[in-house]
Amino acid sequence: MKRQGIGAILAIIGAICWGIQGPVSQFLFQDASYSPEWLMGIKMSIAGVLILLFTKTIKRQSITHIWRQKRDLGLLFLYALLGLAAVQYFYLVTVSASNAGTATILQSLGTIIIVILTALIYHHLPSRNEAIAVGLALIGTWLLVTRGDLFHLAISGRALTLGLLLALSGALQTMLPVSLLKRYDVMVIVGWAMVIGGIVFSIVHPFWVNPPKFTVGGVLGVAFIVFFGTMVSFICFTSSLKYVSPTVAGMLDTFEPLSATIGSIAFLNTSFNGPEIIGGLLILSTVFVLAIPSQKSTKKELQNNEK
């Protein structure tokens, strides 16, 4: 129970830090001089370097071993670019195109995409719970993006497309590093993935060229995103998987849209109507539906216990 408690606390802290990052990013994007590309370069580069320095100096672990394994190196780059960097970039541009609450809820569709990809890869039909979860997600997304006017999008087509790409990258971020985490410390994987992503975005938009106009609020916002929204959120949530199952961590991940939505309403005066709230709750409920053991798995557990 003590280990589960530690895991739950880590997952909740990580989810809340990521969720609050949304309203902070939305606040920054109100100033046209801040762009998602600039923010990506600086936050991933600084966060990655600090994580690796911490791993090397405080934890006293090797951070270069993975670079000598060609097979693992290729997977690291895939995770860094298609998973870690992609989910952060699409999150920021979806926030910019809509709002923090909507972006974070659309990100939750990643769980459904994992169900669909798993079914396609392993050639088996979804279970009853998975089918129900997919149905709830589709209805919830429809309500969220139409605000109850079921035949007209309430958000732009661009925002919806970016939100779906965000969900896909979130699914890849969960699936790609599984084998790497069995062989390397989570800090090494996340640290190098951050550095790789930071280098790529710094090439696309060097953060030292034409930087935005810095104000006290802007500096504090960027600092929060770098340290809490990026470093703390990823380290805490990924570390929680050592103590609790992915299912439990996924349920606690619902603190992300909760904190993002509350922050948007409280500090940015973002409004959500009834159908949007219902849609968001339906999408979030899919995590709990998927957590319910299926009849087959329950029977299998009972048979194992009898043996």
Results as ranks from 00 to 15, higher is better:
residue 25 S to T: 14
residue 279 G to K: 07
residue 73 L to R: 13
residue 282 L to I: 06
residue 229 G to P: 06
residue 180 L to N: 03
residue 170 G to Y: 13
residue 47 A to T: 15
residue 1 M to I: 06
residue 243 Y to H: 11
residue 307 K to V: 11
residue 37 E to G: 10
residue 280 G to W: 11
residue 72 D to H: 14
residue 162 L to F: 09
residue 209 V to R: 05
residue 71 R to F: 03
residue 192 W to N: 14
residue 258 L to H: 08
residue 212 P to G: 11
residue 273 N to I: 11
residue 171 A to R: 13
residue 15 A to L: 00
residue 191 G to F: 06
residue 242 K to V: 05
residue 83 G to A: 08
residue 250 G to E: 06
residue 140 G to Q: 04
residue 171 A to L: 06
residue 31 D to V: 13
residue 200 V to N: 07
residue 232 V to G: 05
residue 32 A to C: 09
residue 197 G to D: 02
residue 183 R to K: 12
residue 60 R to G: 14
residue 57 T to D: 00
residue 119 A to L: 07
residue 90 F to Y: 14
residue 252 L to M: 00
residue 67 W to V: 14
residue 248 V to A: 13
residue 212 P to Y: 07
residue 30 Q to R: 10
residue 161 T to Y: 00
residue 29 F to V: 09
residue 99 N to G: 04
residue 105 I to F: 01
residue 88 Q to V: 12
residue 272 F to G: 10
residue 140 G to L: 11
residue 268 L to D: 01
residue 101 G to W: 01
residue 33 S to D: 02
residue 305 N to H: 00
residue 224 F to S: 13
residue 207 F to W: 12
residue 85 A to M: 10
residue 249 A to Y: 14
residue 8 A to D: 05
residue 144 L to Q: 00
residue 8 A to G: 13
residue 163 G to I: 04
residue 113 I to T: 15
residue 105 I to N: 09
residue 179 S to A: 12
residue 246 P to R: 01
residue 219 V to L: 14
residue 1 M to R: 11
residue 245 S to E: 14
residue 240 S to D: 05
residue 85 A to E: 04
residue 7 G to E: 10
residue 281 L to D: 08
residue 282 L to Y: 01
residue 116 I to L: 09
residue 84 L to P: 15
residue 237 F to D: 03
residue 247 T to M: 15
residue 295 Q to K: 05
residue 110 G to V: 00
residue 212 P to V: 14
residue 17 C to N: 15
residue 303 Q to V: 07
residue 74 G to C: 05
residue 255 F to G: 04
residue 7 G to K: 00
residue 133 A to R: 15
residue 295 Q to C: 09
residue 118 T to C: 03
residue 271 S to F: 09
residue 261 T to N: 12
residue 200 V to C: 12
residue 125 L to Y: 13
residue 204 V to G: 03
residue 61 Q to H: 05
residue 14 G to I: 12
residue 108 S to V: 05
residue 251 M to R: 04
residue 12 I to C: 10
residue 294 S to L: 03
residue 230 T to C: 03
residue 252 L to P: 01
residue 99 N to P: 09
residue 16 I to N: 04
residue 245 S to C: 13
residue 76 L to K: 01
residue 44 M to S: 01
